[in-house]
Amino acid sequence: MGLRIARPSDSIPISKDYGGVKRRDVVQTIVPASGPWGEFTDTVYCDADTWAIGFRQRVEQPCSDDCDDTALNALELLCGKKDGTSVKSITSHNGFWGDWSNFVRCPGNNNFLKGVSFKIEPPQGTSDDTAANDCQFSCSQSSNIRASNGAPWGDWKQMTYCPPSTAICGFSLKLENTQGTGDDTAMNGAIFECCAL
């Protein structure tokens, strides 16, 4: 595995305020299946009266047999109003490696992210671990959405949903810090906050 150096400013723990203040209308936290490594970053929230309507993801594409693959590195949620107007995006960490996809969003009005699942590669022993490889969301009034840049390893886990009359309004990444000469996995998963609609 090749050595890569992350910028010191990207290391965990994260205390930057990338999102809005904590929401008072959080109804439930959902915890989709994730990889075994990493720590949770600070939770970030959409502003009051907005919810997640789309997302983009940062993924390192397969590099080669002599490189340390990390696959999924970060997520960014697009927050919007009930009329479908996007307001801002939120993330709790930008990740370390890879490229960002374009934003993918739930179509139309009153259509929010309500469920999520990750494609997770299990631990590989002495081989290269990647943990989370891809992410998909379920929209409240339409089918699932995915970005086009997911990595190839692992299996899709069960979709985890917010309760009725709620939608995703915040999240925290489960992120493994850079390992120096060790095996990096970067993002392993996330937890999501569901707020009343």
Rank of each mutant, 00 (worst) to 15 (best):
residue 3 L to R: 12
residue 190 A to M: 03
residue 137 F to E: 01
residue 19 G to D: 03
residue 58 R to N: 07
residue 99 D to L: 06
residue 183 D to C: 12
residue 131 A to M: 12
residue 6 A to D: 11
residue 38 G to T: 02
residue 100 W to N: 09
residue 20 G to H: 14
residue 196 A to N: 01
residue 164 P to F: 00
residue 122 P to V: 03
residue 29 T to A: 03
residue 87 V to T: 14
residue 167 A to V: 05
residue 167 A to H: 00
residue 28 Q to W: 07
residue 129 D to N: 15
residue 52 A to L: 11
residue 101 S to E: 05
residue 144 N to D: 10
residue 67 C to F: 04
residue 133 N to D: 14
residue 147 A to I: 12
residue 97 W to V: 11
residue 53 I to Y: 03
residue 125 G to L: 00
residue 162 C to K: 05
residue 66 D to L: 03
residue 128 D to G: 03
residue 114 K to N: 12
residue 77 L to F: 15
residue 98 G to N: 01
residue 54 G to A: 09
residue 168 I to E: 08
residue 95 G to F: 00
residue 11 S to V: 13
residue 74 A to I: 02
residue 34 S to M: 08
residue 190 A to Q: 03
residue 157 K to Q: 13
residue 107 P to F: 06
residue 86 S to A: 14
residue 77 L to I: 09
residue 90 I to T: 02
residue 177 N to Q: 06
residue 122 P to N: 07
residue 37 W to F: 12
residue 81 K to A: 01
residue 67 C to K: 02
residue 193 E to P: 08
residue 59 V to G: 02
residue 149 N to Y: 04
residue 121 E to K: 07
residue 172 S to L: 01
residue 33 A to S: 15
residue 124 Q to G: 06
residue 185 T to V: 05
residue 39 E to N: 05
residue 165 S to C: 11
residue 62 P to M: 01
residue 187 M to A: 15
residue 34 S to K: 14
residue 40 F to R: 06
residue 31 V to E: 14
residue 48 A to S: 13
residue 10 D to Q: 13
residue 154 G to F: 00
residue 149 N to M: 10
residue 167 A to Y: 01
residue 158 Q to S: 15
residue 148 S to L: 04
residue 109 N to G: 11
residue 184 D to S: 08
residue 141 Q to W: 11
residue 79 C to I: 02
residue 177 N to S: 15
residue 54 G to F: 12
residue 186 A to M: 01
residue 167 A to S: 14
residue 185 T to M: 00
residue 27 V to R: 09
residue 14 I to S: 05
residue 116 V to E: 03
residue 76 E to C: 08
residue 181 T to A: 13
residue 132 A to E: 01
